[in-house]
């Protein structure tokens, strides 16, 4: 039966080149190969998010009068609705964490060096998309926390001279966060961002297939080749299964809760904070004027994006201590600001 199906396709489309490619493709294995599994895990989690997101969209209603109620309906009435939403909720958190690990491991292994500059740039853009997914999805349950988090988010670009007001107005869809903002966030979250992600992720994966995985400079001469199929694919599948098991455990043991519906006229509640992955931005905004915070974060992001072109030593196959220290400084800053924001709660 299997042979007949393969023959059916073989007679119509010549599958031999694909078979040959799979048969001969190998992956470099070395001491730090473990970190590469995070890329595959991120791809798997994105798939989980797409599937659960489509399922949630069957019931969700993007209107201030019904949004919170529709999510409550999913959680309380729809069969396994709580589980699907919890997987989507935890999946988003896991995805951000895994993409960050993937980015920092890529950075410290200097995998961005020539000829993989474009892979790095695509990866950073995908990280931006993942954060944009989180931001746009956050408002959808229309809770007090999500409302004010979005208010802060859409007002932040106002400090950008010239186009700040334009950007804020496009995101808000009106003078303030309201019904228009909710429909815009829903459209971005379910149509615009997924289509953009599909293009960027396809290019990222395509480049990783064309260029293969990078070998860290310290591991040159200490690598061995593993067959892509079935060896590497099976290991990747095992990591995906493990990741999904942990995700399911979190979704089951700590189901996502639904905050109270927002009353847009009432004050922001005490101790309000964004999700953990935006805490370093939140703490920066709380510490320095927003124009300085935005300037530092934008400049940092730009330098981070252009690192493959700035770190010329790595591309020449030499050690670049400065960029290792720079990466460590960025990591320490993000962790320190996150912890500071987490432990300091000003309640008057």
């Amino acid at each position: 039966m299997k042979k007949r199906i393969i023959n059916f396709f073989d007679e119509r489309i010549d599958l031999a080149p694909i078979r040959n490619w799979v048969r001969h493709k190998t992956i470099s294995q070395h001491k730090h190969s473990f970190w590469y599994y995070f890329g595959g895990l991120a791809l798997f989690l994105i798939t989980v998010q797409i599937i659960t997101g489509i399922m949630l969209a069957f019931y969700y209603s993007p209107n201030p009068a019904t949004a919170n109620e529709s999510v409550r309906y999913i959680m309380e009435r729809v069969h396994y609705g709580w589980l699907i939403r919890s997987i989507h909720f935890w999946g988003a958190n896991f995805l951000v964490a895994v993409v960050f690990v993937h980015m920092f491991s890529t950075y410290f292994m200097k995998a961005y060096r020539k000829p993989r500059e474009m892979m790095w740039i695509l990866g950073i853009l995908i990280l931006g998309l993942v954060l944009a997914f989180s931001f746009t999805g956050y408002l959808l349950p229309w809770t007090t926390l999500s409302y004010f988090a979005t208010k802060v988010g859409v007002n932040t670009p106002l400090v950008i001279p010239g186009i700040g007001g334009f950007l804020a107005r496009i995101m808000q869809g009106g003078a303030d966060v309201g019904a228009a903002t909710l429909t815009r966030m829903f459209t971005l979250h379910t149509v615009v961002l997924p289509l953009t992600a599909l293009i960027l992720i396809s290019l990222h994966v395509l480049l990783s297939q064309i260029l293969g995985t990078s070998v860290p400079l310290s591991q040159k001469g200490y690598t061995e080749q593993t067959r892509f199929f079935p060896d590497f694919v099976m290991r990747d599948a095992a990591v995906w299964a493990g990741g999904f098991a942990i995700l399911l455990a979190f979704a089951t043991i700590f189901p996502a809760n639904l905050g109270s519906k927002v009353n847009p006229v009432m004050p922001a509640p005490p101790g309000i904070k964004p999700e953990w992955y935006f805490l370093f931005v939140f703490q920066t905004l709380r510490t320095v004027p927003e124009i300085v915070a935005m300037g530092v974060i934008t400049l940092g992001a730009l330098i981070w994006l252009l690192v493959p072109f700035l770190d010329k030593k790595s591309s020449r196959g030499e050690k670049s201590r400065f960029f290792t220290l720079f990466g460590l400084a960025v990591l320490v800053y993000m962790v320190a600001m996150t912890i500071t924001a987490y432990i300091t709660t000003e309640v008057h």
Binding site: V152, P267, A268, L285, R286
Partner: peptide, 22 residues
């Protein structure tokens, strides 16, 4: 006027406080 959150009135001290960024 910082980033748009709704401020809270503190009657004990007659001032407004923003819970978002202080």
């Amino acid at each position: 006027t910082h980033l748009g959150c709704t401020v809270e009135f503190k009657p004990a001290k007659d001032f407004f406080y923003c819970n978002c960024h202080g």
